[in-house]
């Protein structure tokens, strides 16, 4: 289990003021869950993810993964970035296998594992292509395969589909659900899109800016329903979906939401 306890982050802005980017956020990410952080721009979502990834130390609070405090980046937390960070000089297969190379796994095995993962994200036959020969969505899929290669305990994704068109985005969401259903990975996912949050999250936390804090939490089951029935239309047209959408929408758009942390369980 990944536990975030009362995590606060203060940055210093350029003019010397202090920015309170994250205010006493607490969060649990259990096995087999997808926790989605949702909120307007600048509410501290990336800050929270960077802290979990170990890129950013906390000002206050703690983060532990299976009881171990998180201090620096490591292969137990796979990160998928919004900007693609593939190495332009390496082939797709070598990019996917980068973490395995760091772990000292022999080339033959790396290649096999990379091809397997490329199959998982629907990119068979692209092992020897180079990143600049791929579309944005394909590159993002390579990024996911790369993060999965080291078999991390949790996958951290910062608006991974933010730059994709809506069609590709839907495909990628379904692909992610497939990967999740097959591998049972814990996932922490950041998005701007309420629909994406509702569709993907087993838990959704809504954040508000200045200071960045968690103002609401929801437990959902749309994603499990999709994994079982694979019927997007039924889910998107479900009345609970529309109700939740409106509720979260009003939360996100309320300028300074009170910290009315509440829980809601469907079914």
């Amino acid at each position: 289990m990944l536990q975030v306890r009362n995590a606060s982050v203060f940055f210093s802005a350029r003019d010397g003021r202090v920015v309170h980017a994250l205010d006493r956020a607490s969060l649990d990410i259990d096995a087999n869950s997808i926790v989605v952080a949702l909120g307007a721009s600048g509410c501290g979502k990336s800050t929270l993810l960077n802290a979990i990834a170990g890129f950013l130390p906390l000002s206050e609070g703690s983060i532990t993964l299976d009881g171990q405090p998180v201090a620096s980046p490591g292969a137990d937390r796979g990160v998928v970035f919004q900007k693609d960070t593939l190495l332009p000089w390496s082939s797709v297969a070598d990019n996917v296998a980068l973490g395995l190379r760091f772990a000292g796994i022999p080339a033959r095995e790396r290649r096999e594992r990379a091809e397997e993962l490329l199959g998982l994200v629907g990119l068979e036959g692209f092992a020897d292509a180079f990143p600049h020969e791929l579309s944005g969505g394909m590159r993002q899929r390579v990024g996911i395969a790369r993060a999965l290669a080291t078999d991390p305990k949790i996958l951290l994704m910062d608006e991974p589909f933010g730059a994709l068109d809506s069609l590709t985005r839907e495909q990628m969401q379904e692909l992610l659900i497939d990967v999740w259903a097959r591998t049972g990975k814990r996932i922490f996912f950041i998005t701007h899109s309420i629909e994406e949050a509702l569709f993907l999250g087993t838990n959704v936390v809504v954040m508000s800016p200045r200071p960045g804090r968690i103002v609401a939490r929801f437990d959902l089951d749309f994603v499990r329903r999709f994994a079982a029935e694979r019927d997007v239309r039924a889910i998107l047209s479900a009345p609970e979906f529309a109700d939740l959408y409106d509720e979260i929408r009003s939360l996100v758009h309320r300028p300074h939401a009170e910290a009315d942390v509440r829980r809601m369980v469907l079914q």
Binding site: A53, G54, F55, S72, P73, G74, A75, R77, G78, V79, F81, T85, L98, G99, F102, A103, R146, A147, A149, T150, L156
Partner: peptide, 8 residues
Amino acid sequence: NAALSLGA
């Protein structure tokens, strides 16, 4: 950061 989170 990508490389560090892959265990480099």
